[in-house]
């Protein structure tokens, strides 16, 4: 008897650095490490410009995940941890980043990172993370003016989507496209709880629904769920989505349809928004320290 050990939830991990830049030319090397519940990202910036980053799965040990993410971001850059002037830790595991000089909440970091990624006109940021969903309203400087976070259950989160990918034996990276390949939009499944949604999906499969149709129903439920969060903080244009779910076209398209708005697009990876924000905070803190010393 063969056993299917495929991990459909597993997404691709990666790192990158800008080979055209010599980091030693920079004045301030700052770093941000976002240790989330599902994924960890490390970002290195040279004078406020993105230089290197990594994105990997968070393990069971937060300090170890932070170290691994940072080491991977620095791989082949010629930089070592000691070369970084200031590091800010963020995300669920922010207090467990052993080499961080300060911890700042992921809410403030996403607003700041979103401001760089989408420009100063962005006002509403929806961070759809692995284990929670945050609706953030910010000003033109990327400062949070209103925030709302829902982390009580997995509905409307990346982890919920991973559960569905495994249930339907569909690669997590294909979920969005497949969910859009339906002739008619099905009614959404339960949006209040992933466990309820999963058992509802099992029943629908038994009734003869195709995988694509079930995925469409779940993506629709997710979109519906987060709209209520956005309604509470007062939705305002320009609107952007960060986090892993921003890469899921099925959820994004349905969310845009429900909001009657198109979300802003960016050349940056949506999953590193928090770490970018943390690195920007780190740079500002170095500048603040230097100003103090100069006085």
């Amino acid at each position: 008897m063969s056993e299917n050990t495929a991990e459909f939830w597993r997404w691709k991990e990666y790192n990158w650095h800008d080979e055209t830049v010599d980091p030693r030319d920079g004045e301030i090397i700052s770093a941000g490490v976002d240790v989330g519940s599902v994924s960890s990202q490390a970002v290195v910036m040279i004078d406020g410009k993105l230089y290197a980053y990594s994105n990997m799965r968070t393990g069971s040990d937060s300090p170890d995940s932070a170290r691994k993410a940072m080491n991977w971001a620095l791989e082949n850059t010629g930089l070592a941890l000691d070369d970084i002037h200031y590091t800010v830790g963020t995300g669920y595991g922010r207090v467990n980043v052993p080499f961080a000089d300060r911890a700042i909440t992921e809410i403030a970091c996403h607003a700041r990172g979103g401001n760089l990624m989408y420009g100063p006109t962005v006002r509403t940021i929806l961070d759809m993370g692995g284990q929670d969903c945050k609706a953030i309203h910010c000003d033109e400087r990327g400062k949070v003016t209103n925030l709302l976070m829902n982390d009580k259950c997995a509905a409307g989160t990346g982890r919920g989507m991973e559960v569905f990918a495994d249930l339907l034996a569909v690669s997590i990276e294909e979920v969005g496209d497949l969910s859009l390949d339906v002739e008619e939009e099905p009614p959404p499944v339960s949006s209040t709880c992933v466990v309820f949604a999963k058992s509802e999906a099992s029943s629908l499969l038994r009734e003869g629904w195709s995988k694509k149709r079930v995925l469409a129903a779940y993506c629709s439920a997710m979109a519906h769920r987060v709209v209520s969060l956005l309604d509470r903080i007062g939705m305002e244009k320009d609107f952007a989505i960060t986090g892993g779910i921003a890469k899921n076209k099925g959820v994004v398209t349905r969310l845009e349809r429900e909001l009657k708005l198109t979300s802003m697009k960016s050349e940056y990876d949506t999953q590193i928004a928090g770490a970018i924000g943390a690195a920007l905070f780190a740079r500002a803190l170095v500048e603040k320290q230097r100003k103090k010393v100069a006085k």
Binding site: V144, L147, M149
Partner: peptide, 16 residues
């Protein structure tokens, strides 16, 4: 900044 603490679940919205 308006900081909303709480949650939304099947029984309603509970934010301070």
């Amino acid at each position: 900044m308006k900081a909303n603490y709480g949650y939304l679940d099947g029984s309603g919205e509970f934010f301070i």
